[in-house]
Design a protein around this nucleic acid. Sequence first.
DNA 1: CCTTAATCGAGACGGTACGTCGTGTCTTTAT
DNA 2: ATAAAGACACGACGTACCGTCTCGATTAAGG
Lengths: 202, 202, 202, 202
Amino acid sequence: MSGTRSRRRGAQLEQAILDAAWDELREVGYARLTIEAVAARAGTSKSVIYRRWDGRAELVLAAWFRNLPVEPVVADTGTLREDLRTLFAHVARRADSMMNEMVAGVMGEAFRHPEVAAVLGERLANPSPLTEAVRTIVDRAVARDELPPVEVPHRVQRLPLDLIRNESMTCGAPVSEEVVASLVDEVYVPLLHGLAGLRASD
Amino acid sequence: MSGTRSRRRGAQLEQAILDAAWDELREVGYARLTIEAVAARAGTSKSVIYRRWDGRAELVLAAWFRNLPVEPVVADTGTLREDLRTLFAHVARRADSMMNEMVAGVMGEAFRHPEVAAVLGERLANPSPLTEAVRTIVDRAVARDELPPVEVPHRVQRLPLDLIRNESMTCGAPVSEEVVASLVDEVYVPLLHGLAGLRASD
Amino acid sequence: MSGTRSRRRGAQLEQAILDAAWDELREVGYARLTIEAVAARAGTSKSVIYRRWDGRAELVLAAWFRNLPVEPVVADTGTLREDLRTLFAHVARRADSMMNEMVAGVMGEAFRHPEVAAVLGERLANPSPLTEAVRTIVDRAVARDELPPVEVPHRVQRLPLDLIRNESMTCGAPVSEEVVASLVDEVYVPLLHGLAGLRASD
Amino acid sequence: MSGTRSRRRGAQLEQAILDAAWDELREVGYARLTIEAVAARAGTSKSVIYRRWDGRAELVLAAWFRNLPVEPVVADTGTLREDLRTLFAHVARRADSMMNEMVAGVMGEAFRHPEVAAVLGERLANPSPLTEAVRTIVDRAVARDELPPVEVPHRVQRLPLDLIRNESMTCGAPVSEEVVASLVDEVYVPLLHGLAGLRASD
DNA sequence: CCTTAATCGAGACGGTACGTCGTGTCTTTAT
DNA sequence: ATAAAGACACGACGTACCGTCTCGATTAAGG
């Protein structure tokens, strides 16, 4: 009986709310996401949500962070280009419409809520598993003599995410195979070579 | 007397509305921009606005396009690096808080309005004056023998804008001098060299 | 089809709201009456109500005034006492539970809303049909020589209503036959005689 | 240190709560009085209050009964009219805005809570010190030969309170000197004479 | 020049969600 | 065992805009 469910509190209740928010996000997207709907879906009330988070943006950020996917291992295809394509494609797959709408929405509100901006910026600037993956791929390429030894600056490590997100947000559509190819072949591979070359010529 | 102002119509009225929208955008930002407020400021009524545009996003896009700044000439500093820094800084200056909030907001709504997505994507993908500027700068560098001859793909031509916008949107703050330097030195210059080198080795 | 009902405006809409309020009053009483419920029952929205009235009290007052019963003619029983009993009983019948709860509720809010107090006070102090009835009854009694000629002050004219309302509000129950008898025999008839006697002795 | 105050219980705690309720009543009035505020002011929690009283009305009634003023002695001015005026004025002074708002509020809730209605009705119908006062005043007048011997029914004994309360509740304002005069001269004195006269003529 | 159709301005309308407040219940912790 | 503290589910508050609509008033265009 649903009426007999003992009253939830603390962490358990919080989890239920974040789950509800996440489901709501997937179903209607950020723009149509409503605190009321989340409360209803979670079987709780608005006050409980407002007691914990300051508004839609913070709630959604929290729900997002609870649902960060575990980063899978990096494919080892034997080629720098293929490794990168696989990585970019993987990132692209995660940057689906919901994700981007959410990021755009949260960004929109971030301009009025510095702490949201801070949390979001931190999250986007340090996609730790991704930067690791980039280093691994580059190291392999160097080991294979496909690339001169090169130190990859942090900004370049996070570049794949930035490029994909930028692409998929400005297009409002999933990033196609061709675009991934273009980003790898026209931007990222040349950039790595450029970094290696400039370093070498010092 | 204000009551005696002859009733506006057609293009004149439209311009008044777009001006009002633009002013409103600058004063309160996209998130707080209201059709009602725009109508009030323009001294007209909501119906008149809804007759012309489908909603906030389309209205704001229209106002934006009326206020695209004229692209100033490209500085000629004598160095690729300095030319690029000047260009990036120029782009950064225009990517102020209002602009980014607007872009984020419109993006957010674009996911539900394909035609908005199309218009916005087109606008962001083809910042014509900018791509021209990039070509000019690169050509000069090649002419100075600072750079091997290189063909700059379209994706790389628009990259400055993407990088700056990405940076300023994810940070929610104006792009600092250091970040511009980092983008130029760690990304764009190496990329150009990489493109030149790979091309040469074909 | 209900969906095709043309949008109501002005007086028609107002009437629908007041009807809804009145029905709600009768069903759940003042204390449980909710603006939301009235709006729902009237098939309109809260804004429409708030645009017209300042709150629950004013809405209910308006509904009340639309539903003031027409005062029936005064019975002519041949006796002052019987005429008065009939009148008091008639007043008592109208002072039902709903009415009293409403009056008490509105009074409660009147202390914070002077304009409500004014409207309510005016209404309670000048129950015009009632004062007429009192005069008629007294005049008949004088004509029958049941009572010396007497001028009935306004305060005494409205006394029946005050007594009945007081009784029924303090008891929270309909005014019984015995109480009516007591009010007439112990208070009102003696009072009239006293007024006549004092006047005569001037 | 406030945190060190030994935990109160029983009568002491109850008194603290009723004091808090009374203070709250005086400061914000009945309509704005909340259980939460009373609990906060008393330094206790809502549960403790709900364990003892059923709701706002009962709490306030209890607080009221703890604060019934001691009835002062009756002035002896030498005239029936002046004695009555003094008495009425005294009653009027106690029927201040707070008191009336409270009575109206409690009345409003009494319609849904029979036991509240009972307690309130009992209290209003039997204002013992007042009825005594009336008797004293009448007896004195009879002794002075200002009034024929008269038996004052209970209903008439409580009438001063009813008249004043009625007046001050319907007006939402303190009862003026003029109104007191009118109640005495147009209602109460004639009524007493009427009662005496009718009795005499039996 | 005068009619006629269009569209402007003003704002009411039926909605939805907001963020807040208070209720009365329930749980936990600490006397 | 019960006080203190406060979280919880609920429901209503009054506000703000939404996007639609109705209603004159004004204006441009056509006979």
